[in-house]
């Protein structure tokens, strides 16, 4: 039983949240909306996983870096954590891209926020 995969995912999530915090992109911009987007995204992708497992497409591996703990048949506890990471990564990339497209660096946006 290994925790390497789980720790890597948690580390990835931490990094995404640090980016979010630094540039006020997602949770640090509108926590409620971000929580809803994250919940909807994770549930949608989890439903997809379950459908794939039900159809016999997805098979869990026996990798030594995973904990081997299962939430359901073929569904390891790492999967929802991975999905949270995927959603956070997606949203940080999107909101970051929007920020770049509007040519508004975080500091300037922040100053504007404070001046309103």
């Amino acid at each position: 039983m290994g925790v390497l995969y789980l720790l890597s995912l948690l580390l990835g999530i931490t990094c995404m949240l640090l980016l979010d915090h630094r540039f006020r992109l997602f949770f640090w911009r509108d926590a409620k909306a971000a929580a809803i987007v994250t919940a909807v995204g994770v549930l949608f992708l989890l439903a997809w996983d379950l459908a794939g497992i039900g159809l016999g497409i997805f098979l869990r591996g026996e990798g030594t870096i995973a904990t081997g703990l299962l939430l359901a048949p073929e569904l390891p506890i790492e999967e929802p954590v991975f999905l949270i990471f995927l959603v956070l990564c997606t949203m940080v990339l999107y909101t970051g891209a929007r920020r770049l497209l509007e040519r508004l660096p975080a500091r300037q946006a922040e100053r504007e926020r404070e001046n309103v």
Binding site: V40, G41, T90, Y94, A109, R113
Partner: peptide
């Protein structure tokens, strides 16, 4: 692909009333 097509739209819709300068 599915995530990036659907979720940013949801985000934009949920935050549509906030101007770029809305105070958190």
């Amino acid at each position: 692909l599915a995530g990036v097509v659907a979720l940013p739209g949801l985000w934009m819709w949920l935050t549509r009333r906030r101007g770029a300068g809305a105070k958190s």
